[in-house]
Amino acid sequence: MNAPAPLLSVRNLKVQFALDEGVVRAVEGVSFDVYPGKVFGIVGESGCGKSVAMKAVLRLIEAPGRIVAGEILWRRKPQGGPGSTQEEVVDVTRLDPNGSVMRGLRGAEMALIPQEPMAAFSPVHTIGDQIVEAIRLHQAVSPREGRRLAVELFKSVGMPMPEQRLDAYSWQLSGGLRQRAIIAMALSCNPRLLIADEPTTAVDVTTQAQVLRLLRQLQQERDAAIIFITHDLGVIAQVAHDVLVMYLGLVMEQGPVNAIFHAPKHPYTQALLRSIPTVQSTPREPLPTISGSIPHPFNRPRGCPFHPRCPQSMPGRCDAATPELQAVGPDQSVSCFLYQTAEAKA
């Protein structure tokens, strides 16, 4: 599993927003690796920093936000013309976000599927114009060739009547078709990494099933890596190979999807999985809940961010220091003092 080199390697990433009221530590030291051909799921509730971390990877953080520490190592496509296999690793955090290198990466090598397809397209240009623009930005092709490629893309994402749909405006399409169009646009330059930020949150379940199936199929066909961000544990269980659970800017737990769902170690992961009503759970029985609510970003608890809500919180320990992420099994790691006592004693 660790044989291939990671495509993206995030190391101790920290992103902060300096506001008048104080500093919001949106991402507080997050590390993970994304491998080619795998779907990497990031789950977390609002304010956990999952979207900010992805914006950092794309270098789309705007002032007053700033990457204050960490590395984002990206393995570039071979640059030396056809036949070259020389892959270069760049640290994205050191690039100028508006410079030519970053602009060459964004859209071409790593592409974003945003949450709201309605807001992602301009309503005054046809969808075709926007996709062809993206293609011609990264590839030296004629407008006619660009349009041919766009039709191909629409076919590959299962868009009915692709020719006509290219001339449509975003508001003329239904939610499902719009989502397909945005996926087609993200795929336009054959990226190595697709970042899907809650791609199915704004659509209905039947459309969601269509989109998930499409992403799964595209990932297998193209062998691309996908980072899939969501708060829906059901979706994560169905699409991801590896899962990262975040809470208030920190990684709580990380591991293969089976381990996270069948042998969760962190009390937060455990509580989260217990508290969701599923079609299988016993009806009308009180659900196990997580007490309290997510703290305001200005009132980050000291120590482990989850300790005020944690049923297994150890006074004097969890509220004093932040636990480090540590391995608890093959590929599974967790940041919780419950699993560090044994280590300390040993």
Partner: peptide, 11 residues
Amino acid sequence: VPVPDPAVRSG
């Protein structure tokens, strides 16, 4: 409906 269990293929 996606089931929150990777062992159950749904959707």
